[in-house]
Nucleic acid binder design. Structure first.
Lengths: 168, 168
DNA sequence: TTAAACTTTCAATAATTATTGAAAGTTTAA
DNA sequence: TTAAACTTTCAATAATTATTGAAAGTTTAA
């Protein structure tokens, strides 16, 4: 396969995976493009490469910066902004986990915590099942939360940092 | 909070979480409804409870059965089919992980594997960056895959089964 | 100041995804 | 067989989500 074709295939696959996991396809594609670019790219270049509009490129890049996956770079003597993606897979995974936890897991945890405290008739099967399910899910969610927390602090922790080395 | 209100809130939260993770909102809501139901429900009851059409209920339930999260039950002397959700959170997590791996991770792994083998000029920075990124991501994805595999076989493995006990 | 070079916003629109509901299909009992 | 009781399918439509592109905004150099 040609390098050019391989790049397209990678961008497509990354975009598809993203969209299956609730991440905007274009955002994943821009990220993919930057991941395989040795140099930082301009909005203009990204627009051309992926055939997307200026508005779309602009908002997508802003999101990626917001997710901590891409950084803005300024080149001396130039007006244009350049975008560069962190290429360390572990950082990428960590950033994504961090953001999704904050945006999605945390709010659900709050609701679950609240629902855990709903009182009712201990003899009512409706109540018993509700209560048990909510409590069980809450427990699992909390454990996931705790695990992610530990993961995100990996470098400070001998246990996880040794696990991570295996993954690198 | 009233039990009825709490149920609605749970169904809503579960649906929202699902949709943020690329799972059809209605499917997540039906799952939530079944999770907190002590008894198996009929299509009719689910339709009424969530105000969805027969077609939608039917397809959603079929999907949930396909995901291994819900089972069909038949009651003696009745024509109607009943649906019952497994309430063991660990089984739920495991089933979801298993299905998503099969449906989404595996295909990506295949593409990555292929792209790993693209040959090119080792001095071309374009090629070098492409190659390195793809290889790194492949390595990570493979490790995730392996870890999930181990997780899914948890019960056969003393290490994971002891970890899982902490999670239950 | 001005104007060129750039970025951002956002209403309109396009694309995608989910849902409906009626018709067709299936199963069972008699 | 038949018909009642149920399930499934799928084209049409609705709802949601993503994208465009032009206008407005900002920054910089001179």
């Amino acid at each position: 396969m040609e390098l050019a074709a391989a790049k397209l295939k990678f961008i497509e696959a990354w975009g598809k995976l993203g969209s299956e996991w609730g991440i905007n396809r274009t955002m994943a594609q821009v990220h993919a493009l930057l991941l395989i670019s040795p140099e930082a790219l301009t909005t203009e270049e990204i627009m051309k490469e992926l055939s997307i509009s200026r508005g779309n490129a602009n908002m997508t890049l802003r999101d990626l910066v917001g997710w901590g996956l891409v950084e803005k770079q300024h080149k001396a003597g130039e007006r244009k902004e350049y975008f560069y993606a962190d290429k360390d897979t572990w950082n990428i995974a960590r950033q994504v986990a961090k953001e999704r936890r904050k945006r999605e897991l945390d709010p659900v945890l709050k609701v679950l915590e609240e629902l855990t405290n709903v009182k009712g008739d201990a003899k009512d099967p409706e109540f018993k099942t509700f209560s048990k399910s909510v409590k069980d899910i809450n427990k699992l969610a909390k454990n996931v939360d705790k695990t992610l927390d530990t993961m995100l602090k990996a470098e400070e922790n001998w246990f996880w940092s040794s696990i991570f080395k295996l993954f690198k």
